[in-house]
């Protein structure tokens, strides 16, 4: 339990650093460390497979692509575009809404009864696969459809317009 608090503190710290750093590349690097602490959280929750997949997909692929784009754009404090007041106001309102939602969720959360894990091997690949393909087949297939749609969209956007003769 004490390990959880240490890791949670680190996650919060690095998440805050992500927001408050001026340099976009540093910001992404802090985000990478935040994701790493999430991986540790998953391991603490006995979900090894999820931990490793989070590690590979988020840290190893998505964040590298983020870093990629930021390095190519080469943004820094000097060329940071000025945001209009309207955007700032909207961001504040959206942030407040999120805060209220989180507070409400925390309020409803029952912290009295301790959560007992029934099966410690639930996070293994075999059990996860069984659950995904039996109990949650429909949501699983729907989300794969969603991913496929996004992929087709991305390919379509990346494709060059054919030259008309």
């Amino acid at each position: 339990m004490s390990l959880f608090y240490v890791v949670a503190l680190l996650s919060t710290f690095f998440a805050l650093m992500t927001i408050f750093t001026k340099n976009p590349v540093h910001s992404v690097l802090y985000l990478v460390i935040t994701f790493f602490t999430f991986t540790v959280h998953y391991i603490l929750l006995n979900a090894q497979f999820l931990a490793v997949v989070n590690f590979i997909v988020y840290m190893g692929a998505i964040m590298v692509l983020f870093l990629f784009v930021l390095m190519l754009l080469n943004m820094n404090e000097d060329v940071e575009p000025m945001k209009s007041t309207l955007v700032k106001v909207m961001a504040v309102i959206a942030g407040c809404c999120l805060f209220v939602t989180v507070c409400g969720a925390l309020h409803l959360f029952d912290t009295q009864t301790p959560l007992i894990e029934k099966d410690p091997s639930i996070g293994l690949v075999k059990n996860l696969g069984q659950v995904l393909f039996k109990e949650f087949l429909l949501p699983f297939e729907l989300s794969s459809l969603l991913l496929l749609t996004a992929m087709v969209g991305a390919v379509l956007l990346a494709k060059k317009e054919p030259k008309r003769i």
Binding site: F49, V52, F55, I56, M59, G60, A61
Partner: peptide, 8 residues
């Protein structure tokens, strides 16, 4: 998968 993660 651990190997893949570290390589990544």
């Amino acid at each position: 998968l651990y190997m893949f993660g570290v390589i990544a």
